[in-house]
């Protein structure tokens, strides 16, 4: 099995204590993380999975008194909801800012918005924005930790973490697994973060897309590109489908949704090429009948799609907890 880099000292699980486990102020991109930092966040998330499942009352007060602003400059339902639930379960005062109802629409610059949010003394800010690099731009202007909830086509780090956690829990490990990511890789921040995180955790990552939806030089992200879905599925342990945005279906990138389904849709016949116990994943929301057939998406043993949603809350709780430890004066994190 391939070896992945380990932290300098490895007596305890990581050999690191306190802040050494995650010496970052923000969570902006998987590309900024070391493999053991990714594993640390996954380990932390395991705790929250247990808490979330254990009792009816899931409240933990550790973020009490901290204000969490979810600043979403791009529409989102499930990610926003997931961050909101995560914050509330940790006791934070959660406020949502939607671009549609904010002064952003009135021409306020992103920097001005950042300065404004900062002046409100947020304890943590969660940002989604349609432009690659926009979240980092805001993070440079605020004092509190910033969590990237998706910036353009660049990264969506918490999605990659929740996907890695889902795989690790189902398969027992990530290292050595063959993971096939299929769909609109070109426009996908989910694909970018997942390629980086899964490669860092030692998986063999394959990406498959029509040539029109594959970024140039994708090998630099640690993945092997395919155009033939069948070949990419051979022996796969995990099949991760990406959502095909409606605006890409008009003929510019693919001829039609039905042709896409014929060539790149995940059907039971296709799935048979993967390992018999291969896991099926999708970040949602799904286009049933386009990139994925309902019988596959709803398969009781193979589909991990609802579990991904559950892991999302746990991962986001872990990230919110870890990033605010310094401000909360947690021992070893000052």
């Amino acid at each position: 099995m391939p070896q992945t880099p380990r932290a300098p000292s490895a007596s305890s699980p990581t050999g690191l204590v306190g802040k050494e486990n995650f010496p970052h102020k923000h969570l902006l991109a998987i590309s900024a993380l070391k493999p053991w930092e990714i594993r640390f966040l996954l380990d932390e998330a395991e705790h929250w999975v247990a808490v979330n499942r254990s009792s009816a009352c899931k409240h933990d007060g550790r973020l009490a008194g901290l204000t969490q602003i979810n600043a979403f400059f791009e529409n989102s339902t499930r990610t926003l909801l997931s961050f909101e639930i995560a914050g509330k379960r940790l006791g934070a005062d959660v406020v949502n800012m939607h671009a549609a109802t904010s002064s952003v629409k009135k021409g306020e610059t992103l920097i001005d918005t950042a300065v404004t949010l900062n002046a409100m003394r947020a304890g943590v800010i969660v940002i989604r924005h349609g432009s690659s690099g926009a979240v980092r731009l805001i993070a440079d202007k605020v004092d509190c930790p910033v969590l990237n909830a998706g910036d353009g086509w660049h990264e969506h780090p918490t999605q990659a973490l929740l996907d890695a956690l889902t795989i690790r829990r189902r398969k027992g490990h990530v290292e050595g697994l063959i993971v096939t990511i299929c769909g609109d890789v070109l426009h996908s921040r989910v694909a970018r973060s997942n390629m980086l995180s899964l490669a860092a955790l030692g998986a063999q990552v394959r990406v498959v897309a029509p040539p029109t939806l594959m970024p140039a030089a994708v090998e630099c992200m640690g993945a092997t590109p395919y155009t033939d879905f069948n070949a990419a599925l051979d022996g796969a342990d995990v099949v991760m489908m990406l959502r095909l945005q409606n605006e890409r279906m008009d003929g510019a990138f693919i001829p039609s949704p039905r042709e896409y389904h014929a060539l790149y849709g995940l059907t039971p016949e296709r799935l048979a090429r993967a390992k018999p116990d291969a896991l099926v994943m999708h970040p949602g929301p799904m286009n049933r009948g386009v990139e994925i057939t309902s019988s596959v998406a709803d398969h009781p043993e193979r589909s991990a799609i609802t579990e991904q949603v559950e892991m999302g809350v746990a991962v986001r709780m872990a990230c919110l907890d870890v990033l605010t430890r310094s401000a909360r004066g947690v021992e070893g994190w000052a």
Binding site: S132, G133, W153, H154, R189, R192, A217, V218, C220
Partner: peptide, 15 residues
């Protein structure tokens, strides 16, 4: 320009 940097940053690129 199409290439590693554009792909890593997730920027709209052309050959």
């Amino acid at each position: 320009t199409s290439g590693e940097t554009a792909t890593r940053l997730g920027l709209h690129h052309a050959p």
